[in-house]
């Protein structure tokens, strides 16, 4: 496996494609995170809020996205992780997680990170600093 320091500006870490989103994924996240907002788990509540169906917690997707960096935690840790939520994630959506090096400094590798759905639309996007 590559080390994070082997990646150069413009290089991408190996992307990760998630399995289609299930209701159980979101029920588990609700329990583990303590976010029981019912628009994430109960159809009627989501519809009552004007949504076509339940949507994933933004933090579920943001939590998933960070795992692109988990294999490199022996080299350092995530110092900064800033995300803008750009689009909703629905059941059955297939999310792909991506990270590309935008800048390398002495002790920091700066990435652009994003999660896209099956239509290649950004659902979240941001920047991450990995501190060596």
């Amino acid at each position: 496996m590559n080390r994070i320091t082997d990646f150069q500006e413009g290089d991408s870490l190996p992307p990760i494609q998630l399995a289609p989103v299930t209701r159980l994924d979101l029920i588990k996240y609700a329990g583990a995170s303590g976010d029981f907002n019912p628009i994430h788990t109960i159809d009627a509540e989501a519809e009552g809020a004007g949504l076509p169906g339940i949507i994933a917690h933004g933090m579920w997707t943001m939590g998933n996205l960070a795992k692109i960096f988990t294999p490199y935690l022996e080299e350092g840790f995530i110092q900064d992780y800033a995300i803008r939520f750009k689009g909703m994630v629905f059941l059955e959506d297939v999310i792909t997680l991506k990270a590309t090096v935008v800048e390398k400094k002495q002790r920091q590798v700066i990435f652009q990170v994003q999660a896209v759905n099956q239509s290649d639309k950004d659902v979240l996007k941001g920047d991450l600093v990995f501190l060596l």
Binding site: S33, A66, K67, L73, E74
Partner: peptide, 24 residues
Amino acid sequence: RKFAEAIGDPAPIYIDEQAGAASR
């Protein structure tokens, strides 16, 4: 452990005691 599983990231550095002890 529950949180790491819920975000699909049950990596040893988070959940395995020995892996944690051997880590940086």
